[in-house]
């Protein structure tokens, strides 16, 4: 009994660590709250709120004339197409790059327990990995909207720069995620395939990719859901789709058309979410 109590007493000093961490976290939160100038009365009370309410009321009713309908439908189709082709381009870019960003395919892990690459070859492989990783980071850190500005400058206005923007940014995201999936596959079957005398390529297509594929599909579908929203925004910088029409509607104070376009975005985002959920259930 006495022994137990002594041990409990000895254990007690360890409990100050979580307390300290909690206090630190609280301080960080308070500092961030202050730093971001959170102003709740300014948000919910006062003039701003009334102005927004007036503006929103002014949007009604939505313009359902045939011309606006056609315009919204065309914009929605274009946005859908941008998100789809952009996401496919992202997979096309991300998949090959992810192979470079996978250490276990290049220089370490179970495939390299036996014959190791010589020091020169190993350095080259590590460099290849670093280059792949750096390229993916570059693609990923530049936001879609900045890529869109760059590509509008390069290829002109329209949906095409939107596709490129989504492809490049999302390609960087998917490349990183795919690489993590590839590094995470169960190594045991890879060892077994290696023992049959299979080449690294055979092991990749027969052992690594089948294991990674369901997660690849899942990630790609998720990014497609993200991209449909992003595609709707890219139009603000001239990259086609609903965003471009919304930008015009706002600039020309066409409030009723604006509401129709916003409803179109809502519809198409819902549609893609449902489609993605359906495909995920079927494929994964």
């Amino acid at each position: 009994m006495g022994g137990l109590r002594a041990r409990a007493a000895a254990a007690r000093p360890g409990r100050t660590a979580p307390l300290l961490a909690g206090a630190g976290l609280a301080a960080l939160l308070a500092w961030s709250w202050h730093g971001t100038a959170v102003d709740l009365p300014g948000l919910f009370g006062g003039e701003g709120m009334r102005q927004v309410a007036t503006y929103v009321a002014g949007l009604f009713p939505p313009d359902l004339s045939a011309r606006t309908w056609r315009d919204a439908a065309a914009g929605a189709v274009e946005t859908f197409a941008i998100s789809l082709i952009g996401s496919l381009l992202a997979v096309g870019l991300g998949l090959p790059l992810s192979l470079l960003a996978t250490r276990t395919l290049l220089y370490r892990g179970i495939l390299f327990e036996g014959r190791r690459p010589g020091p020169g070859a190993r350095t080259a492989r590590v460099a290849l990995y670093a280059a792949g990783k750096a390229l993916l980071n570059l693609l990923r850190t530049i936001p879609e909207i900045v890529w869109a500005l760059i590509f509008v400058f390069m290829v002109g206005l329209g949906p095409f720069p939107g596709v490129l923007a989504l492809g490049f940014h999302t390609g960087g995201v998917l490349g990183k995620l795919f690489g993590e999936v590839l590094e995470d596959v169960d190594p045991a079957p890879l060892e077994a395939l290696q023992a049959t005398g299979a080449s690294r390529f055979g092991i990749l297509v027969y052992g690594v990719l089948p294991q990674a594929l369901p997660q690849f599909v899942s990630y790609a579908l998720y990014r497609w859901e993200v991209n449909i929203r992003a595609a709707a925004m890219l139009g603000f910088v001239g990259a086609g789709g609903l965003g471009q029409r919304i930008h015009i509607a706002i600039s020309l104070f066409q409030e009723h058309q604006l509401l129709t376009l916003i409803l179109a975005i809502y519809a198409i985002v819902t549609l893609v979410d449902a489609l993605s959920a359906y495909l995920r259930a079927r494929l994964v």
């Binding site: 169960d186 045991a188 079957p189 060892e191 077994a192 395939l193 049959t196 005398g197 299979a198 080449s199 390529f201 055979g202 092991i203 297509v205 027969y206 052992g207 089948p210 294991q211 594929l213 369901p214």
Partner: peptide, 26 residues
């Protein structure tokens, strides 16, 4: 150490990977 998502047949056939070339693996 099977590839769990592949069929029994495909797993058995993987024993031949050391004999077949690039395209047949692919």
């Amino acid at each position: 150490a099977l590839v769990e998502r592949l069929s029994v047949m495909e797993n058995v056939l993987s024993g031949r990977l050391g004999y077949v070339g690039f395209w047949r693996s692919w």
